[in-house]
Nucleic acid binder design. Structure first.
Lengths: 269, 269
DNA sequence: CTTGGTAGG
DNA sequence: CCTATCAAG
């Protein structure tokens, strides 16, 4: 069982042919061994998303998605080779959940697994946008506590927009007061992991900087590997014990950059 | 003395290299025999315009321009191989001219010639935008009457956004109620020509449809030559008598399309 | 279909 | 620097 997660930074741009060598997301989808793929920042409504992914759907992929409330913003989805047997939109427990309409949280069951695709707000230190990010963090943590109480194995994938430790951001010193590496955000992740979730990429690469999963388009950030590791798969411990490999597909991304993020791919035996 | 006029549809886009074969406006500028070039729809302020045209200025071209009041809209300019000895912005006679700030009218003297670069509003039938277009038409006609009373030879170049006769629009039947081919607009041009101005391209091509100078980007308008002749050079009669050639540079535009308009180029002996 | 502005990343 | 939106042409 292989699970991938990637922030596509606009599904319509991601599926576009960019050059003869770089034909975008669809060739990657054709060749990936993944069984489940979590997508974030589709920046499209359900109809536009299905249209962009039409070739994949024709190939038999199943699709679930959570529409953004604002056009051209957010949007998350899950692609699965096996049927999707349950979907839940929003981290909250009821329809008046403030985030249910934001296109930031989608949870599905497929086979024996529960998979969530989550897109955290960017935030902005010292502003209301950071307050909203923290409300979203609290809502997701509450839902993840519920998931732990369930019987099913679960993995929560996404763009968390938080670097956890100094290993996770190349320029961590310059970012100590920036949204994405604030002490409160880092502590929140530490606390979340203490409840029983496992950051499976970090467990397999405990001491190395990165592997980064996002590089700014600006300047030569990608060439210099001046990146951030902000895309995580958090698995419950029983599932995490089954991890056989966990990597960021940077090599592929190097040749074929159709997003500013790279896929984070984990094989569970 | 060769005068060209072209609506560049955004100077910053026009100077961009579009492909190995199509390097944009600058190579055309390198090879054109024109002595004076009127530009419309630069969609840039004076500083952005000078930056986009920096290679031409380094080659010795002189530049005058009229800033648009709204960012990214309108904007007219004149490039001249010889020095520009007088500049006037706006068709009106005083600073409270409503159009002086709109980046639609620039008049210069160079050598013995007065040259104006004018960008008429698009208009929209039955709306306030048409009323404004007609106010601009009246202001330009008034200024052109003044020009005729002057001693100097003068040519008023630009994107008039009006097709004069059925020869000037391929699909004239479908456009009889559309801004750009309204009876009032056509009559205004007829009246203007009756005051002593000469549409020099039409005089040299009296009976042929076109030659069109604008084609919509939509569909296959350009390939089908489904165009409009809306870019004119109007010369006073004495100057018009010196015309030796007048053409639309469609052949060049075919290979190298860096605007939806093509240059209208006239040689005066 | 293309331009430039703007918000957001 | 890239992805969207939008108004305008």
């Amino acid at each position: 069982m292989i699970v991938s997660t990637i922030n596509v930074n606009g599904i319509r741009a991601a599926v576009k042919e960019r050059s003869p060598e770089n034909q975008g997301l669809l060739p990657w989808l054709k060749t990936t061994p993944a069984d489940v793929i979590c997508l974030q920042e589709t920046r499209a409504d359900d109809e536009q998303l299905a249209e962009a992914l039409a070739p994949a759907l024709a190939d038999g992929w199943h699709l679930a998605s959570a529409d953004p409330h604002l056009k051209g913003r957010n949007g998350v989805a899950v692609l699965s080779r096996n049927p999707i047997t349950r979907t839940r939109i929003g981290p909250g427990s009821n329809a008046d959940d403030e985030f249910a309409s934001h296109g930031r949280y989608l949870e599905v069951d497929t086979g024996d697994l529960t998979v969530a695709s989550v897109y955290f707000p960017t935030g902005e230190a010292e502003t209301d946008r950071q307050v909203e990010k923290e409300r979203f963090m609290a809502a997701v943590a509450a839902r993840m506590a519920e998931l732990l109480r369930n019987r099913r194995d679960a993995v929560v994938c996404g763009d968390w927009n938080i670097g956890h430790t100094e290993l996770d951001i190349k320029a961590w010193k310059a970012n100590r007061k920036k949204a994405g590496f604030l002490p409160a955000e880092r502590a929140w992740l530490t606390d979340l992991l203490a409840t029983g979730w496992v950051d499976v990429v970090r467990v397999l690469h405990p001491d190395t900087p990165g592997p980064y999963s996002w590089w700014s388009w600006r300047g030569k950030a990608f060439d210099n590997d001046a990146g951030w590791r902000i895309d995580y798969q958090l698995a419950n411990r029983r599932l995490a014990d089954r991890v056989v490999s966990a990597r960021v597909e940077r090599a592929e991304a190097y040749a074929l950059r159709w997003s500013d993020h790279a896929p984070v791919t984990v094989e569970y035996c």
